[in-house]
């Protein structure tokens, strides 16, 4: 979701993007639940400071709550590799290793989700599109991104209009799941039809307005950048690269933990443990 247009954005979108990518990469490379939780909390604090917490909190909750629940059930109750059994109910077995695994995964995903949501809730998409087009990213990419965000409310408005029109024609919405499914089908047809027809019209309008990517584009919008931000981006990306390289080379100090065995068993070409 784009930030409202009237809030002052002090930072260049590339700076916040670099910070988000570096944050996610370093957290993944460090791979410690304490660090992950610290990153997630730091993001929450930043969200409060930049005034997006009210919109970010429900978005994050919708993603993380079912995920955490799913992890807790999945690994908390069923973790065949676990040794330290805390409770045993036949098929379901609570193990310390399983809980630890769920905590690790839950914390790391929380950090990842918070970092990127903070970016997307604070970035101004028109600015992002403008800097991308200045960096020779194909203009089509910026188009798809900006247009999707513009079209989403327009399409939900259109769907509401179709629903009203069809109710007025005698379609009773509601009832059993099959009736609901049939109603959805009837709404999808005019929705998709008019969306495709509108899109065909828009394609010709875009062509006529010179949008074919064959010429270098300029941008009406001027997005400020500073030397300090450029330096920060370079440092953040270098740190991320270093952390990833360290992890991949196997030089990272190993934390002790239970080993999961036999993941390759499913695969005929699997390497023996």
């Amino acid at each position: 979701m784009p930030a409202p247009l009237n809030t002052p954005a002090a930072l260049n979108p590339l700076t916040t993007l670099a910070a988000a990518v570096a944050g996610a990469a370093i957290t993944t490379a460090v791979s410690s639940w304490a660090v992950s939780l610290a990153v997630a909390l730091a993001c929450a604090a930043l969200a409060v400071r930049s005034g997006v917490a009210g919109r970010l909190a429900p978005a994050a909750a919708v993603i993380l709550a079912p995920f955490w629940l799913s992890l807790l059930v999945m690994h908390g109750l069923f973790f065949p590799e676990g040794r330290t059994v805390l409770a045993d109910w036949g098929a379901a077995r609570v193990t310390a290793e399983g809980l630890r695994f769920a905590l690790d995964m839950g914390a790391r995903t929380a950090a990842y989700v918070m970092v990127f949501l903070l970016f997307s809730f604070t970035v101004r998409v028109p600015d992002l599109v403008a800097v991308m087009s200045a960096r020779r990213v194909p203009p089509q990419f910026g188009y798809v991104l900006a247009s999707t965000l513009t079209l989403a409310p327009a399409i939900s408005g259109k769907l509401a209009r179709i629903r009203r029109a069809q109710e007025s024609r005698g379609l009773v919405l509601g009832g059993g799941p099959l009736r609901r499914l049939a109603a959805v089908r009837l709404q999808m047809v005019p929705l998709v039809l008019s969306l495709i027809e509108d899109a065909g019209e828009r394609a010709q309008a875009l062509d006529a307005r010179g949008f074919n990517g064959s010429r270098a584009r300029t941008s009406y919008r001027d997005v400020p950048d500073t030397a300090a931000q450029r330096a920060f981006r370079a440092v953040a990306l270098l740190l991320a690269a270093a952390a990833v390289a360290l992890r991949l080379s196997g030089q990272w100090p190993q934390l002790q933990g239970p080993q999961l065995q036999g993941f390759a068993m499913l695969w005929p070409l699997g390497v023996p443990a």
Partner: peptide, 23 residues
């Protein structure tokens, strides 16, 4: 991902496979 030692995802999902998969 299928061929490499996937055992390393256990201890805190220590990220080799994670980073390779993502990247």
């Amino acid at each position: 991902l299928v061929l490499t030692q996937p055992a390393d995802i256990t201890n805190g999902l220590a990220g080799g496979s994670t980073l390779v998969a993502l990247g």
